[in-house]
């Protein structure tokens, strides 16, 4: 059941999550998670693997259907649990079209060129005319610095380029929010910078974003809020710099001690 009585969010929040629960079999992955993201806000989700951060991200666009609680993005709210009806596939699809998602393993469509990958959403989902969609797609590819790769197939691109195409593909849907699921975890270290640079620019343009990441220095730089999760609960939450520089919980301190907290961003050598 949804639980909307304790309204701690500002009216302006873009994403509002209340009492979210999810189990896979007997494994309870999310235990009563609540979360708000302000319009234009950037929230970084960090935590050890198995902490539930990726599942939480996938619950925001309902790629994973929660067992209980509620999810609101913009004006669309879904409640889950006893008594809540499961939404039909069309309602879900329409909702997902307003959120962009970038995956750890890119998930580009290998049978389409870069341009076709970016056009696919606008044409198939938004029913946009092909010429308009192509104009939009070329603009998005230019934005991630890959205009000249439009006619190449994903197999010919580097990991960093693939991920930038994936970002362009998500942006072509002109989403209200962007979700990043460990977008740089599958990349060679020297390719991380170019993807982070694109995400950082999106943040500066005021895109609302939730970023699951292991790049602590990047999170400190780009996110305004940071959430540390462990074992399906939010352990610590606050301003990104404050949590990283001065963690209050022992678990957060222990986790952060695995990273060099120099605050420096990886070099954006191949960035556009």
């Amino acid at each position: 059941m949804s639980e909307t009585s304790k309204i701690t969010s500002k009216i302006t929040s873009k994403i509002e999550i209340r009492g979210l629960r999810k189990s896979f079999g007997s494994n309870e992955v999310l235990k009563n998670i609540s979360l708000d993201v302000a319009k234009g806000g950037v929230v970084a989700l960090i935590g050890p693997s198995g902490s539930g951060k990726s599942t939480l991200l996938r619950c925001i666009n309902l790629l994973v259907v929660p067992d209980g609680g509620s999810v609101r993005v913009g004006d669309t709210r879904f409640a889950f649990g006893e008594g809540a009806k499961l939404s039909d596939v069309r309602t879900l699809a329409k909702f997902r079209a307003t959120t962009g998602m970038v995956f750890q393993h890119f998930n580009l469509f290998p049978h389409m060129t870069t341009l076709q990958n970016v056009i696919e959403g606008p044409v198939t989902v938004r029913r946009m005319a092909k010429t308009d969609a192509e104009k939009l797609a070329r603009a998005q590819l230019a934005k991630v610095g890959l205009a000249e790769k439009a006619d190449q197939y994903p197999a010919t691109l580097s990991g960093g380029q693939k991920q930038r195409v994936a970002i362009a593909r998500a942006l072509a849907m002109e989403p209200d929010v962007m979700l990043f699921d460990e977008a740089t975890s599958a990349l060679d270290p020297e390719l991380v910078g170019e993807v982070l640079a694109v995400i950082q620019r999106l943040a500066s343009e005021g895109m609302t974003m939730v970023i699951v990441t292991h790049e602590i220095a990047f999170a400190r730089e780009v996110a305004d809020r940071l959430i540390f999760m462990r074992d399906g609960v939010v352990v610590e939450e606050g301003a990104a710099r404050q949590v990283i520089d001065n963690p209050q919980q022992a678990a957060t301190r222990a986790f952060l001690s695995h990273f060099h907290r120099t605050g420096a961003l990886p070099p954006a050598n191949a960035a556009p």
């Binding site: 699809a93 696919e120 959403g121 989902v125 998500a170 849907m173």
Partner: peptide, 17 residues
């Protein structure tokens, strides 16, 4: 790969699309 249909779903495609 499951990621392919997930990417389609994330763009707002129905399962049929």
């Amino acid at each position: 790969d499951r990621g392919q249909s997930e990417a389609g779903a994330a763009l707002g495609m129905t399962p049929g699309q």
